[in-house]
Amino acid sequence: MHRYANPSRFIRIADTIFPWAGGIMITAFAIGLYLALLKSPADYQQSEMVRIMYIHVPAAWMALFTYAFMALSSAAVLIWKHPIALLSAKAAAPIGASFTVICLATGSLWGKPMWGTWWVWDARLTSVLILLFLYLGYIALINAFDETERGGKAASLLALVGAVNLPIIKYSVDWWNTLHQPASVFRLDGPAIHPDMLWPLIIMAIAFKMFLLTTLVTRIKSELIAARVQNVQRSLHGNLADGRG
């Protein structure tokens, strides 16, 4: 476990991952957008509006996935005091929050013409809004202290407790009578969606996942280097103080 806690090794891994993840991301976005906006057919009920699904659904999946990653990292922080786990969770939070904003905003843009309203307080929409507040709360807590470690414990606790919201989001459409439609891809009896619409969705989902990976390794590396900067600054101040004494 602590083998991956070596910052220099992590930076080397990040430098290897970045060009690959970035390349796959650009390719997947190019193919995905072509399929989503040009090749895929209009839906018999939603007509062209179905195209919003190709960003709304991957954003929703990644909003949940990123939170699960953040919650697991936070568990590693609280149990093992794993130093890179804290930086990973801190780096993931703004990415997850962005996915959640995209999910909510595109859902709203879909809802206005399809449902006749920008927003309803149904269980799915409300639980996703709570997810956004959890992300924002985490970001606020971890940045409330000058040293990451101090705010880290409180923020990690929040992330862990907030994980209870994930199954609520997933099953909200089954447990409650929501306006939001139930799952049509991850179902026990297989996807209930035509391959012409499933493929662009899958490829866009890969693009979103690679976006997470690319941005995440960039942000973690940035946090690691920022920690080094702080160390060097501290040693410089120390030298200065010694010189005066």
Partner: peptide
Amino acid sequence: MGGYGAFIWAAYLLATLILAGLL
């Protein structure tokens, strides 16, 4: 887009701006 262009392009534009901006 069958009369829905404003909604669809707004959704794609917003997603692009947020993702590109964050990266």
